[in-house]
Amino acid sequence: MNTEQQNTAAGPELVVGVSPHIHSGASVERIMLDVVIALLPAVAAALYFFGLNAARLIVTCVATCLATEWICRRLMGRNNTLGDFSALVTGLLLALNLPPGLPTWMAIAGGVFAIAVAKQVFGGLGYNPFNPALAARAFLLISFTGPMTTWSASCIDATSTATPLGMVKEAFKAGAPAPFAMDGGLTLDFLLGNMNGCIGETSAIALLIGALYLLYRRVITWHIPVAFIGTVAIYAAILHAVNPAASMPVHFHLLTGGLMLGACFMATDMVTTPTTARGRLIFGVGCGLLTMVLRTVKTGAYPEGVSFAILIMNAFTPLINRATRHRIFGAAEAAKREARK
């Protein structure tokens, strides 16, 4: 059975690398694609409620982000990363975070900022400290406060030019009672997304369907959404219990503004959020607290606080990661042994 001469032909073709030699099959591309799939209900809701304006913003933002990503990588002499779909996700998320009437050129500016400044300047996917779409939204909000807070283009509520959160904040600032009561009909409208707001944030139900898909696909874990939304709920409940006249009920806070979009899609962006379960809980609670503070402090400039809350917590991510590292197997025992000596 001397087979020395056999099979040697396969030699130079063999692949040699370090273990492990099998892989789960998970990929960044698939994760990004799952996020896109999970956003489809919200996109559908945006198209339904805001029509052509939504289509215009989505196409503009996605195209801008993809183009900017391609150009940046090209200019930096790096590989083309359009294939990882992260720019697609950023474009989509940015569009969903914009008011329907925003001029196209501002959306383009936002897309360029998201990719060029908030992402590629830091080295691209994986290195950005802040969620690019949110950073771009903050950039637009500060640069073009007027257009970013003008909601008159809504197709359903032409009489009011403010979001529910905005109306409430103005009323409470003026010391007036709540401008509307959260009855069953209004709650259903809010749940479905029939109100003023950014094109992708209004339909809580569409966003929750997407979030369930992400959970099912294990792209995200429950920690951040649950901690975020839970904190908002508890905070709102306490406020309402203490002073029902000058605060809104819990379900108002859960269904309005960018909470669902933020908690399920923006605060769960893995690049800019903590890696451990405990860290994610802390992150979620922090986002929730900041959101409610920004929403309810009467002297605050903005009626909504989700974007800034997440961006601020993004900055704390490295610190949270550091503080919530796992206990290393046997470390406590080794320390005990050291102490005994």
């Binding site: 692949v15 691209g124 890696t275």
Partner: peptide, 27 residues
């Protein structure tokens, strides 16, 4: 069955942190 490695940046997903039986942070 051979899927080559890539030198892609870590996206901080934390899956390795969950998988490590020693509680290390492979990322």
């Amino acid at each position: 069955c051979v899927r080559p490695y890539r030198s892609m940046a870590c996206i901080n997903c934390g899956r390795c942190v969950e998988a490590c039986p020693l509680g290390l942070m492979p990322n």
